[in-house]
Amino acid sequence: MRIAIIGANAPDSMEWHFADAFQFAGYEAKIFDIYEKFPYTVKRLKHYFQVLDKIGRTYSDSYDRKRFLSVANSINEYNPDLVICFYRDIHPAFVDAVKSKNRRVIHVNPDALTSFGYQQVIAANYDALFTKDPYILEFMKNKAKLNAYIYNEAFNQRYNPKPACTKAEMEKEMNVDVMTYGTLYPYRARMVRALVDEGINVKLYGVVPHRFFDKALEKCYTGKYIVGEEKARTIYGAKIMFNNFHFAEIESVNCRFFEANGCGAFQLCDYKPILKDLLPVDPELVSFKTIDEGAEKVRYYLAHPEERYAIAEKVYQHFLEHYTYDHLIQYILKTVETL
């Protein structure tokens, strides 16, 4: 089977992990990135060209259509059996241009509902839509009458492998009480600030936004953007990985939830009812409903390392058996077979 993936061809992107899993399973898979050709290949100017392109696609339908029809031509030349789209702003004309009798075109939405833009995902004639949020699934199926399916996100055990040493040994090496990572948006920073104000030692990894960053957290910021084995070691080596979900994760969790558990971390996250379906332990043990409860549980587990180790190992084994990208692509392929 030949598979075309439409999205960002960048290490650690969901598209990249899908391609890795397909290739590992013996399929031919190629990522088509709208920014893989000149002038976007000029590294020092890429960002500026992307901004101009985004403005053009936002305000000019003809330009937007032209951009994606160009990608459609490349797809048709590649002649895949299956097209999997990840960009949320793909012009609907693209879908019509690449669909054929023997070729399915599906969309996997890796983000929360705030990323829907001009709702291109809903306007396009996809053969199937995959969403991680039961709230969005209910709307798509029962109101918009779309052919939608639920899916759970995943982790890549080849790219982010759990370290071979014990968690206690890695914690001693890292010497980090609490960590979190990703773009340090205000919603994340506010909650981390509450922990810091309680006297909890927090380390921050990722990207500082160019606006509205809380200066009180500068002392916590490491200046590191972690990927691959370094990400796995950092997450595993922290005593607690603190994961506060975006407020638009209505009934879903984020990719970080799967990555952390897949690295063998001990994770504390926002409570969501879906946790009971995802975890092999009582969700109340590893989640919080208020930030005060979160701080209380941080202090408790810092003082009870053996409980951390036991929970982290049980969760890791469960996720290794159920939530790798290898599992996810097989679920996608089996669903596509029924279309």
Rank of each mutant, 00 (worst) to 15 (best):
V98D: 00
Y87N: 03
L278C: 02
Y236N: 11
K297I: 04
R256W: 11
A21H: 04
A19I: 03
V105Y: 06
I106G: 00
I55M: 04
R188E: 02
K54H: 14
V196R: 09
A189N: 07
L328N: 13
E15F: 05
L320G: 00
I55A: 06
A154S: 08
T335C: 11
D292S: 10
P39F: 07
P161Q: 04
I84Y: 05
T338W: 02
G7N: 01
R67G: 05
C255V: 15
N244K: 12
H304W: 03
N244I: 06
N201G: 13
Y27P: 09
F24C: 11
Y87D: 02
D326H: 07
F257H: 05
E249L: 05
D12A: 13
N109V: 14
R256C: 08
P11Y: 07
N160F: 10
D177N: 11
P186A: 08
F242E: 07
V105T: 05
A123I: 10
L278N: 13
A154F: 05
L184P: 06
E171N: 07
V202R: 07
A128K: 00
Y48H: 15
C220W: 00
G7P: 03
L52D: 09
A164N: 06
K66G: 09
F18P: 04
E284D: 09
K101N: 15
G264W: 00
L328Q: 08
A303I: 00
A303T: 04
N76M: 07
I55Y: 00
G264F: 01
P186G: 10
E138S: 15
K219T: 12
K43T: 14
I136Y: 05
R67H: 12
E337H: 10
D214H: 14
N175L: 10
V298C: 00
E307C: 08
N125W: 02
K239M: 09
N243C: 12
V227P: 06
Y126G: 03
D177W: 00
P186C: 02
M170Q: 08
A303C: 07
P110A: 08
Y301A: 07
I122W: 04
S62K: 15
A312C: 02
A189Y: 01
L302N: 02
